[in-house]
Design a protein around this nucleic acid. Structure first.
Lengths: 138, 138
DNA sequence: TAAATAGCTGTAGCAACCACAGGTTCAAAG
DNA sequence: CTTTGAACCTGTGGTTGCTACAGCTATTTA
């Protein structure tokens, strides 16, 4: 049996976050001690580990809810899991692309700046006039 | 003189967002009509344009506040502006790097899945066990 | 002049937590 | 057995950058 602090140390998840996951129904309510403190079993640790790792990989809480449901139905085909993971991967890829365009635009803007006073600053000019951008960027 | 709706159409910024920018002090309070409706001048349009464009380039509200202050002191050297833009560019670059590592991890996870049932699904296994990851990706 | 559209303020909600405040319980030391 | 101090409890409010009402008033158009 883990106390909430022990579970926290075991998973690297903050105490408040554990209670938050319980409140939103992502973690099941654990047993309580006589004095009303939470007492966790091994399966809680595994589930929280799953949640934290999924979050680190950028899945949303909604995604994780689905993944947990799917992983409970262990004899079903895993194509739904696969599809969810692929969608997420594609979303990450798209975000990378869009941030790349952003960085390029920032680079051009910064490269245009030759020093001098703010009135002639290329950065300030570009920020005030989208027309000076080479690309659409959102 | 623009009404708030006209300013909204002129800048692509939602009416509620314009009011929000006023509330947080990013946009100055405009004149009012007899019936208490907001009436904007050209300099409001320019400032809002600057704000929107900066947001599109990923600057935070805090950054924009600084940029606006700096751009008001038009005879000062623009090195502070430059530095802020560079810091932001570097943060974007770092985010791209970290998302790249994430995508690679997701790719490995997905590639490991050979179909079959959820109990043997590689995706589910990896999510439950960080040790199966090749890299730290936190 | 009446209806339709646009504007007003104020509040609450989103994601995914974090940080208290003010009180209670637990575990170990004396 | 008692004390002490760390850990725990619930509930609320804050973060970022907006968006979406509700319930009312102003303006514009037919």
């Amino acid at each position: 049996m883990y106390s909430i602090g022990e579970l926290s140390r075991a998973t690297g998840c903050k105490v408040e976050t554990i209670r938050y996951y319980e409140k939103i129904g992502l973690m099941p309510e654990p047993a309580r001690s006589v004095g009303n403190q939470r007492r966790y079993a091994e399966h809680h640790r595994e589930r929280l580990h799953f949640i934290r790792h999924s979050r680190e990989l950028g899945f949303t809480i909604g995604d994780i809810r689905e993944l947990l449901e799917l992983s409970d139905q262990s004899q079903r085909e895993c194509s739904a899991v696969d599809a969810l993971a692929r969608r997420h991967r594609d979303a990450v890829q798209e975000r990378i692309r869009s941030l790349g365009a952003l960085r390029d635009e920032l680079d051009r803007m910064i490269a245009g700046c030759q020093g001098g006073d703010v009135a002639h600053c290329r950065v300030i000019q570009v920020l005030g006039d989208h027309g000076l951008c080479r690309q659409e960027h959102a």
